[in-house]
Design a protein around this nucleic acid. Sequence first.
DNA 1: CTTGACCTGTGTCCTAGACACAGGTGTAAA
DNA 2: TTTACACCTGTGTCTAGGACACAGGTCAAG
Lengths: 135, 135
Amino acid sequence: MKVTEFANSMNTTPDTVRYYTRIGLLTPNKSSENGYKVFGKPEQKRLKFILSARQLDFSVEEITDILTQADTGHSACPLVRDIVEQRLVATEKQFQEAMVLRSRLKKAINDWQDKPDNAPTGEMICHLIEGEGDE
Amino acid sequence: MKVTEFANSMNTTPDTVRYYTRIGLLTPNKSSENGYKVFGKPEQKRLKFILSARQLDFSVEEITDILTQADTGHSACPLVRDIVEQRLVATEKQFQEAMVLRSRLKKAINDWQDKPDNAPTGEMICHLIEGEGDE
DNA sequence: CTTGACCTGTGTCCTAGACACAGGTGTAAA
DNA sequence: TTTACACCTGTGTCTAGGACACAGGTCAAG
């Protein structure tokens, strides 16, 4: 399998596959006549794992660590558990931040509804934003 | 005012100030003897605006557009309203995504609670992740 | 004059790929 | 066989918003 076919079959993009290859996460054989990357079953499993982990928002570096563990015969599960818990904390934070931002934006839209569009003065660039003594 | 003093007084970092200067958002005078950047009142107002807009998650590029508008004497308010609305949509999306990810992570932690830490086999890297036929 | 703390501008680095590009490949028509 | 043309390839570069590294400048104390 060449890059594009492989990527399609795994439901990702050729660029992603090339990227993972570039950083050494995937190690396809190289066709001796083409120089083209050639992917087989083992790469398929590996990529499937990588994509699943990315779905859980693991960073590529974290995935690299996990695969290194596994490649040297150690169980990667404890590491995986760790990362998942961290990720949950981070996601919770993102979640809260998105909430705050959302209400801030909604408030802005509301507050501005009846205000005019002023031209900028030397004092103000846009009174909508600068008018607020927000936070 | 020099960079660090200026940054501190505006409650941001010198690196941020330098960055904005680098890309032309701030245009401090340069001390003729030092070559150091020198910030005054106009820059203060400008930076205050920039930081407020960043709080609303405006991109630096969007802010650049707004300031360009204002600098040429046009009201930036319509543009600002536009961006805020877009941003609200984007934030809503982020918000949803964070929710999805959060529940995915929680589910993983739950599902894995009673599972052992297996060593990797040729077939599996980490059965916790690969075991799931998730989604 | 020297020490040392702090400050400066500039250059490079980060994520996770996306995009551009010159050239290779493969199939079909001529 | 040659040509045409679509598609594919690897590699190099770009992104956002600063953070960090680094060699050298500045300035008050001694």
